[in-house]
Computed example of a mutant assay.
Amino acid sequence: MLGLANAARALVNGETLIKSISANKVELVLIANDASDNTKKKITDKCQFYHVDYFIVDDIETISKAIGKHNRVAVGITNQGFAKKIKEMIGG
């Protein structure tokens, strides 16, 4: 599902992710469970402040492979439909 969202240009990652959360453009954030504690805290604090749902999911390799990029620690889904479907798949 992440690959489809990426192809539809409904994902943000990297520093763009933090800016997009602040601008209320992100519906859902997925964070790798093996991300550094500092990175997790930075992203989760931002999500909580702006009331964005987030999940700690698989490892960095799995997220990176799903979107076809290297070393992606977290991704934000900007499309409400994709976000809803991914939440259902995760069970949230």
Rank of each mutant, 00 (worst) to 15 (best):
I31Q: 02
V29M: 03
T78M: 15
V57F: 05
E27L: 00
R72V: 15
Q80M: 10
V73C: 00
V57W: 07
T16K: 14
R9I: 02
L28W: 07
D45K: 15
I43E: 07
A23Q: 14
L11E: 01
K41Q: 14
G92L: 11
A8W: 03
N6G: 06
A66H: 02
A8G: 05
D59V: 04
Q48F: 05
D59G: 15
I63S: 01
A23G: 05
S20M: 08
G3E: 08
V29K: 03
I90L: 15
A5Q: 02
K85C: 05
N13A: 06
K69R: 13
K85H: 09
L11M: 06
M1F: 10
V73T: 13
T44A: 01
L30D: 06
H51E: 15
K85M: 11
K85L: 14
N6E: 13
V75L: 04
V26I: 10
D59F: 00
N71W: 06
I86Y: 06
Q48G: 14
E61A: 14
A66E: 12
N33S: 09
E61F: 10
G91I: 06
G81Q: 12
V57K: 08
S20T: 03
S22E: 15
E27V: 05
L17K: 04
K87W: 06
F49K: 15
L4M: 11
T39I: 09
N24A: 10
N6F: 09
A66S: 14
D34P: 03
T44M: 12
I63N: 02
G14A: 00
K42A: 09
T16N: 13
N71Q: 12
Y50L: 04
E61P: 00
A83W: 03
R72E: 12
I31L: 14
K65T: 11
F82G: 01
L2R: 04
V29E: 01
K42D: 07
L30E: 07
G3T: 00
K40C: 09
I56C: 05
G68K: 04
D59H: 07
K65F: 05
L28Q: 07
K42Y: 07
C47V: 09
I86M: 09
V52P: 01
A7Y: 09
V26A: 02
K40Q: 13
T44C: 05
S20I: 00
S64N: 09
H51D: 15
A8Q: 10
A66L: 08
M1T: 13
Q80S: 15
K40Y: 08
M89A: 13
S22K: 15
E27R: 13
A7M: 10
L4W: 00
G92E: 12
Q80I: 12
L17Y: 02
G92C: 08
N79P: 04
M89Y: 11
N38V: 14
I21M: 08
